[in-house]
């Protein structure tokens, strides 16, 4: 793929526009919609880069599942406009500083140069590139350790979520079941704390 493929440029530009839209949107649901559009465009970018499996996975996992759940939660909480006050003092300036560092890194990488396409314009993509088999192979041999670590992190997060939900509900149940034990639910030391 030559670096100046017009389709790639157009889709990439749209992806940036939707990403900016996601940050700037005042309405939470609009923000989430911009994000869905961004994920979809990212999937198209993967397609253009000859990785159809990754594109489909992007659609199924991010656009199809994660963002649906995000929308679900947003809708459960009701229609809210974005908070205009800053939870962290001076967060805009901090964000600007972080942006500067990342931008500098990007410029530096760009200066190092992208691997040039071979003579004749387009690089040759090996036939099995990006196929489910090649992806699986890489994931379960070369990258097996990071893969397992990620699944462990997800498991920990899941247990954490269950614990939080469980502890919030539990004292109330005990209170309902046996008022003698739990006169004031908030003061019960949890057995796992």
């Amino acid at each position: 793929m030559s670096g100046l493929d017009p389709a790639f440029l157009i889709v990439g530009a749209l992806a940036i526009v939707t990403a900016v839209g996601m940050i700037l949107a005042k309405n939470v649901v609009h923000s989430a919609l911009f994000m869905v559009a961004h994920f979809g465009l990212t999937a198209v970018l993967y397609l253009l880069l000859s990785a159809p499996f990754l594109a489909a996975a992007q659609l199924i996992v991010y656009a199809g599942a994660i963002m649906v759940l995000v929308l679900f939660v947003v809708m459960l909480l009701g229609r809210q406009e974005a908070l205009l006050d800053e939870p962290i003092v001076g967060q805009r300036w901090l964000a600007l500083a972080a942006l500067g560092v990342l931008g500098a890194a990007l410029v530096r990488v760009a200066a190092l140069g992208v691997p040039a396409a071979p003579e004749g314009g387009t690089a040759v993509v090996p036939p099995a590139f990006g196929s489910p088999a090649a992806m699986g192979d890489a994931l379960y041999t070369q990258w097996v350790l990071p893969f397992e670590v990620v699944s462990l992190v997800l498991l920990v997060a899941m247990i954490g979520a269950v614990v939080i939900a469980h502890f919030q509900r539990r004292p109330r149940n005990e209170k309902a079941g046996n008022p003698a034990i739990a006169a004031d639910a908030t003061e019960i030391p949890s057995p796992r704390a």
């Binding site: 869905v36 979809g40 159809p52 489909a56 996975a57 199924i60 199809g64 649906v68 929308l71 489910p132």
Partner: peptide
Amino acid sequence: NVALLYVLGITSLAVYGLV
């Protein structure tokens, strides 16, 4: 070569219309 995944991916977007 991932046509089946394409169908699953697209149909998983169908929920957005309803939501």
